[in-house]
Computed example of a mutant assay.
Amino acid sequence: MKHSAKHVYEKMVDFKRFGTILLAVGAFFYLGAIIPSAANSMTDLYMMMAASTGFLAGSIFFFTVSKQYRTKLTEMDEGEEYLMKK
């Protein structure tokens, strides 16, 4: 299956955005878990830590996929011009 350089570049940028958004959401859940509050029960803390871990794992996954698309783009002949857009 042959992809054009523009298609690969757009996928790389999209996956990087997904990773950034998941990283931010995971950080907010982590902050909610470590900031002390009298209303938080242990179950709430465990759920927030599990959500934080899940979002951060998803972020790592999306950044890895973005990196794979970037290496695929560097191997393409016309891929270098898309990488110079940054």
Rank of each mutant, 00 (worst) to 15 (best):
Y9M: 03
E80S: 12
S59L: 04
K6G: 08
P36A: 06
L83S: 04
S4F: 15
T20P: 01
R70K: 10
T74W: 03
H3Q: 07
D14N: 12
N40I: 14
F63K: 12
T74K: 14
A33C: 03
K72V: 05
Y69H: 03
V13E: 04
F55A: 15
K6T: 09
L56R: 09
K2S: 05
F15C: 14
A51L: 14
K2W: 02
Y9L: 02
M12Q: 02
S37K: 15
A39Y: 03
E80Y: 05
D44H: 12
I21E: 02
A24I: 10
E10R: 15
G54K: 01
I21Q: 05
M42C: 04
L56D: 06
L56V: 14
K72E: 03
S59Y: 02
S59Q: 01
E10C: 02
A24P: 01
Y69S: 00
D14W: 15
A51G: 09
L73I: 00
K86Q: 10
N40V: 15
M76K: 00
A39T: 03
E78R: 09
M42P: 00
M49F: 15
D44M: 12
K85W: 14
K72Y: 00
Q68R: 14
Q68G: 06
G79H: 01
K72N: 06
A57P: 07
A33H: 11
L45K: 14
R70P: 04
A39V: 07
A57L: 15
K11H: 10
S4D: 12
D14G: 05
Y46M: 11
A50S: 14
M48N: 01
S59F: 06
M76C: 10
M84S: 09
F61Q: 07
T74Y: 01
F28N: 08
S59M: 04
Y69F: 10
S37H: 08
K67D: 06
I34S: 12
D44R: 08
G54V: 02
Y30Q: 13
T20I: 06
E78A: 13
F61M: 07
A24G: 10
S52G: 14
H7Y: 08
T53N: 05
G19D: 00
M12P: 00
P36W: 00
F29N: 07
A24D: 09
M76Y: 04
F15R: 08
M76V: 00
K6S: 12
K2F: 05
T43R: 09
T74R: 12
Q68V: 10
D77V: 08
V65P: 03
T20M: 03
L23V: 01
A27I: 01
G26K: 00
F18V: 13
G58K: 02
A27S: 07
L22S: 04
K16C: 03
Q68L: 07
A27P: 01
F15M: 13
A51Y: 13
T20C: 02
G19M: 00
G54N: 04
T53A: 11
F63Y: 11
R17I: 15
Y30A: 13
V25E: 11
E10I: 05
M84T: 14
H7K: 09
A50L: 12
R17F: 10
F28M: 13
L23P: 00
